[in-house]
Write a protein that binds this DNA or RNA. Sequence first.
DNA 1: ACCTGAACACCGTTCAAGT
DNA 2: ACCTGAACACCGTTCAAGT
Lengths: 253, 253
Amino acid sequence: MPLMGCARVSAVPDEVDRPGSPRWWSARLGAAQPTAGRGRPPVPLERIVDAALALVDEVGAQEFSMRALAERLGSSTATLYRRVSGKDEILTYVADRLLGEVTAIGRARGPVPTWEAAVIAGAEVLFEVLRAHPKAVVLFLGHVPAGPNALRGRESALRALLAGGLSPELAALTYTAVARYVIGFGLQLSEEALTAQATADDLRTLYRSLDPERFPATVSVADVLPQSLAEEFQFGLGLLVDGVRRLRDGQPG
Amino acid sequence: MPLMGCARVSAVPDEVDRPGSPRWWSARLGAAQPTAGRGRPPVPLERIVDAALALVDEVGAQEFSMRALAERLGSSTATLYRRVSGKDEILTYVADRLLGEVTAIGRARGPVPTWEAAVIAGAEVLFEVLRAHPKAVVLFLGHVPAGPNALRGRESALRALLAGGLSPELAALTYTAVARYVIGFGLQLSEEALTAQATADDLRTLYRSLDPERFPATVSVADVLPQSLAEEFQFGLGLLVDGVRRLRDGQPG
DNA sequence: ACCTGAACACCGTTCAAGT
DNA sequence: ACCTGAACACCGTTCAAGT
């Protein structure tokens, strides 16, 4: 509460209605046209979000700036503030757009035979999309996704679980745990995805260089470290789905 | 690769030796005294890291600034740059210090009877520490922790797994998958931990307000949503550990 | 030897002034 | 009605100048 004056700081207090929060989305989803003003908007919101995603993919969320986005759109920052409330709002739209990609890919691949296959397919498609946009994953930090694409994706996933015979309680727990699991792993992709192999090799080298007296266990597993985050991801995902299946089969009713 | 001139930007290219990478830590761990210069340093690194953690806890990693840190230390930013290479390096030390807290708490609580209990206890202590420093969790983004406290923690965890009869392969997979799982969930704590209940309530309200024709599954689970991230965390952690146990028991040898 | 004020090149956001 | 240059209050990092 010192440091007043700068809008970046003074915007922090009212957290609950910050772009991306459930309440914030709720207000926006209720409105007929999110950005309808008096005249027709010359730069549609969609173009802004397209450009923003491209910019994040290129330079990263950290280096993303309103100035750079305005330049890419051949406009000025002040013009952007006529369409959106600020940087946070734009990035919230970018996150929901990624979830739209997930839906599109899932639909393109067609139906799956069982609820287990649906969970695994959904988790893997989301993970793929996050891997394709490693610099954008941090946009999911601190939000439960609640935009239109998030809602549609959740609905179809929950339908598959309920149709598979899971109780509402187990379906809700499974959905949220798996979604968190995928995003949690995705967050760790970060920008390192590009240099993942280098990181894995460096880690192995570091472990091997340790004093075997003090670090015997670490040294002994240096040669069998998982090769990639994707491998760790698959391993845990399989365990989660197996565990849910056992719970379902032991479930009353 | 435009935008030259500002050090923040020009520092990005050589990713591999950025503070926190395995190679970067490896160089530092080899050096006798990390910051030994000619005279005795008047502001020990430990004081800087203490102050930095306190500052991150208070204002968040996003608002953390070298100016604010210098002011808290009664010094100037230029003085900080005599002890560390920059903001990234300080935040890397802060992350490793949190892992030190994990070790200290684990030690204080004493030994556990089985490898399963060790995994669960370790995961829960780490999760508790992350929950106690929700604004600091983002410091784990994009790094495999490789500082001194990270190495010690990994060693003792791997020892417990190997002693429990897991093969080196299964021990390595289990350790990395569980560590990623905990940090992944921890990352989603973010600053929302403070308003978690509000978020959960908002989500429930949002789900209930949806059109039951279009979102029947979502509406039907609105009343049984998990109450907290901690609940989702426990659920998944239990499934993971059960799954590993079954793999261990079916493991050759 | 150690420290620091002031500078440089950036931010997000706003608003008076233009068309 | 719509747009924007210029301003304001911040950043991380560096370096000449002080003690």
